[in-house]
């Protein structure tokens, strides 16, 4: 499949601060591509550059063959953006919002009317289209937010954290809508999230992004495969190289290494400041990458008992994108 989006060495700087550090990736036509990373990783900045909201400092990108620097007007017609914020006019009805967002893409007359009805059907809000946004639930607002990005039938849809603050029912509805748009209309999607479950469910390929850099990019299956059978974190009072070698040699264990204690991710906006980033424990932590997590746990605990080394903590992580992120960055995606 040809690439609808090709990004090369894209960078965004604000003075000395580098928000996006030369990232490169591509998205194939009809693909759902995930950008997974914690808050502040650079996902929104990347999308903002690709949709023409802010100019890149350096690097390049082409969308359906159009350069984002020299041909942004064409790029904007191809793109659809669903921002992280509820970018709607709350005192207007859903229909009035969608009419307006259609008009700013040059739509009018019957074509606009048909498109608005179509996207209202997609997000299942036809019956309540004339109600003010203010009167909607959080989930319904999110659905109108998505509809506003679809009204001009984009080829490439950027969904920036579209499920923040959404109830499970609306979240499932959003997932179904994205899958249907991709499957039935062949729409390519760039989906950013810090919820690994969403990315695992929706995306064919995922780029894990942290501190403005892509630190891993592959299919979900291959990324999880990095961890084999999962990870085990054990806290001990004392650790030396000899112990790490002995642990690596146990059955079911692929690798054992000393790591800094895991820390919570940066706070999201509005989160309790009491949850400030800090190490979970002051004891040394050993990370064990398992080939078979059950076998590895049994062997490690027996071995430490025999050695008379008491455990101060034990955490077993199933192989998923969350544990992949932890494995690669030493940080959790979210609490």
């Amino acid at each position: 499949m040809p690439a609808i989006l090709e990004v090369e060495n894209l960078t965004k700087k604000y003075g000395d601060f580098e928000a996006v550090k030369g990232i490169s990736f591509s998205v194939e036509e009809g693909e759902v591509f995930g950008l997974l990373g914690p808050n502040g990783a650079g996902k929104t900045q990347t999308i903002s550059m690709l949709t023409g909201v802010i100019p890149p400092t350096s690097g390049s990108a082409r969308i359906a063959g159009h350069d984002i620097k020299s041909d942004m007007n064409e790029v904007k017609k191809i793109n659809g953006l669903v921002p992280q914020d509820l970018a709607l006019y709350p005192t207007l009805s859903a229909r009035a919002n969608l009419n307006f967002f259609g008009r700013i893409y040059g739509l009018g007359g019957n074509e606009l009317k048909e498109r608005v009805e179509d996207v209202l059907r997609i997000v299942a809000l036809t019956d309540r289209a004339d109600q003010k946004i203010d009167e909607y639930s959080g989930g319904m607002k999110r659905r109108v937010n998505i509809a506003a990005g679809l009204v001009h039938q984009p080829q490439l849809l950027f969904l920036d954290e579209p499920t923040v603050g959404v109830d499970p029912q609306s979240r499932n509805h959003i997932f179904e809508s994205v899958q249907r748009l991709n499957r039935e209309r062949g729409m390519s999607v760039v989906y950013t999230s810090h919820y690994m479950e969403e990315v695992e469910l929706l995306c064919n390929r995922v780029a894990i992004i942290d501190e403005g850099k892509i630190i891993a990019m592959d299919t979900v299956k291959n990324l999880i495969g990095i961890l084999g059978g999962g990870m085990i974190y054990i806290g001990l009072e004392e650790v030396d190289d000899a112990l790490l070698e002995q642990l690596t040699g146990l059955g079911g264990v692929k690798e054992a290494m000393l790591v800094p204690p895991p820390v919570a991710p940066p706070l999201a906006e509005g989160e309790d400041p009491e949850k400030e980033t800090e190490p979970v424990t002051s004891n040394p932590i050993v990370k064990i990458v398992a080939e078979n997590s059950q076998q590895a746990v049994v062997n490690v605990i027996s071995f430490l008992n025999d050695q008379d080394r008491p455990l101060t903590s034990l955490e077993i992580l199933e192989p998923n994108l969350e544990s992949v992120f932890l494995h690669l960055t030493g940080k959790k995606l979210r609490e």
Binding site: S48, V53, K76, K77, N79, D85, I104, Y105, G106, G149
Partner: peptide
Amino acid sequence: EAGTLRRLLAAPL
């Protein structure tokens, strides 16, 4: 603040 301006900036107007 609400993000609608961002949406307008992403449109071809």
